[in-house]
């Protein structure tokens, strides 16, 4: 790992995005608009808005970073730039960390804006600190980046990469406790939800919603999400090959 090369990569990824202002606008504004929509959908049920709204604050960064990363790295693989970088003195870790850093910056902006609007304009009522919400959101973004990077190795086209989103994210969304409490599911599904990282992400958000202090469960959730993200990033690094057929 080399700091100069990692930072140069992060800077390059952000510069690429800067030339694409529409993507940036969509990334930043869509979560906010969806929260506004949700606010009025649960016009009569503030408790439901608080629960679903805070969970979504964690889910948005994961989904968007998954999509952005899988397409960006797929492009890198198919345009020949990855092959070229792999013949240069760039470590695989430098490339992965560069991507994670760049999309982490973007995730902070996205989650910061969405959380700010939810708390101040939509009266999202949470017991804990908004900084903890941001922390979970950032880790979720990292997890989304890691998953996106990993699946891009198995996608031969952009069509396939986009289809990995429902395949990887939707099952987690259905099982994470947002639609039905996890302990009320068919036991097999409950076990499945226990090993899926999004369950812990949503649980972490719920802990912040309900408790003013950092709870033991919250700490566990943060550790689980962070370790899964790092583990998948390492798997992603393993899919970058210097030599290909």
């Amino acid at each position: 790992m080399n700091a100069t090369r990692t930072l140069a990569t992060a800077r390059r990824v952000l510069l690429q995005l800067r030339h694409d202002p529409r993507t940036i606008a969509l990334l930043l504004l869509v979560p906010v608009l969806l929260l506004v929509l949700l606010h009025y959908v649960y016009d009569a049920d503030r408790g439901a808005f608080d629960f679903i709204g805070s969970s979504l604050l964690g889910i948005f960064p994961m989904v968007t970073m998954f999509l952005v990363t899988s397409i960006a790295t797929l492009r890198e693989r198919t345009s020949g730039t990855l092959e070229r970088l792999m013949t240069m003195p760039l470590g695989r870790g430098d490339l992965i960390a560069g991507y994670a850093l760049a999309f982490g910056v973007l995730a902070v902006a996205q989650a910061g804006l969405a959380t700010g609007v939810a708390l101040w304009f939509l009266d999202l009522d949470i017991a804990g600190s908004p900084w903890l919400l941001l922390l979970v959101a950032l880790l979720n973004a990292l997890l989304g980046t890691a998953l996106g990077l990993f699946v891009s190795a198995f996608a031969a086209s952009e069509f396939q990469a986009v289809q990995f989103m429902p395949a990887m994210i939707f099952p987690q969304l259905l099982l994470c406790g947002l639609f039905a409490p996890r302990d009320s599911m068919q036991p097999l599904l409950e076990y499945a939800s226990n090993v899926l990282p999004m369950s812990y992400a949503v649980d972490g958000m719920t802990e912040v919603l309900r408790h003013p202090d950092v709870t033991g469960d919250f700490t566990r959730d943060v550790i689980v999400v962070a370790s899964v993200a790092l583990g998948v990033l390492a798997l992603g690094a393993a899919t970058l090959r210097r030599r290909t057929a």
């Binding site: 090369r5 030339h19 092959e83 070229r84 240069m88």
Partner: peptide, 29 residues
């Protein structure tokens, strides 16, 4: 890796960066 240069058949540059930004990045690498 720092002693040889390789140019693939299809130009492997980032189309969403300027020429200078491309070269700056590769120079850093």
């Amino acid at each position: 890796r720092r002693r040889l240069g390789y140019v693939t058949q299809a130009p492997s540059v980032y189309t969403d960066l300027t020429i200078r930004q491309n070269l700056d990045y590769y120079a850093a690498v």
